[in-house]
Amino acid sequence: MKLCTQIERVEKTVDDFTVGPIDLDIELGTITSLIGNNGAGKSTLIKMMMNLVKPDNGLLLHFGTNIKTSEHWKQDVAYQPQSVLGCDLLTGNHLRDLMAPWYKNWDQEMFMNLVRIFEIDLNKRFGKMSKGMQQKLNIVLALSKNTKLLILDEPTANMDIPSKQKLMNILVGWMERDERAIVIATHQVDDIKKLADYIVIMNEGKVLGKYEKEELVYRYKRYWFEDGLEIEKIPGEIDRLNDRLLISNNVDQTDTFLKKNEIKIMQSEVLEVEEIITYMLMGR
């Protein structure tokens, strides 16, 4: 797999909150979703990836280039921040005219096409648009930059449901065009389920891990038992909702134990992604 981004021992302390040290690789051809509670450090990590926030320590490379020493990599990275500053008086057309000349691969046809799909009024001032419309314009601008890496910080938080669905398909199509990668910080379960290949979970400034989606799903399991459990603690157990319902984060260990002790399972099933994330963020 070709690497798009390498993050090595990157660390940043602001006041008394430290993000990192973070080690993370982003592969071309994949979508990585950054998950974590508010204040977990996702946005700070993203801003360090854009060299907007400067790390105290560590190394950050895009396409093999140290982002501290060069500005060229910016051509190949499009970024959508959570909120855009300073553009309230500019219209969609202005923003297009402002950005397009700086991206050598700017795709005007895609831009016009996406503008039509999302029904964006390019003559309206950014500050006069609804939050959802602003996000639509931002994502359309970001996609049309036609870069190798797209970094999105909660891009769909204010969008209506049909637009979110449309965007999902557009992102899928966008990924097909070339060897590319998307990093998306999101709280939307649908984004994670339908788009993510890798899930990076952050908590209190640290990366808890990077998991392939299926790998994560198969780690956890829910068991229902025919008889009440009498055993204090079962290997792999992370939660017990009553004496007949147990959740494990180590299926192999739990299965072996249950078999050995001849405990009858009524049923078992995998957990939903959001349940798994919740458990992980609780440290289980």
Partner: peptide
């Protein structure tokens, strides 16, 4: 495509 099927099935492209 691999990406489109992954989205429909809600799995990773790796799978």
């Amino acid at each position: 495509s691999i990406r489109a099927l992954s989205k429909d099935l809600e799995i990773s492209v790796i799978t």
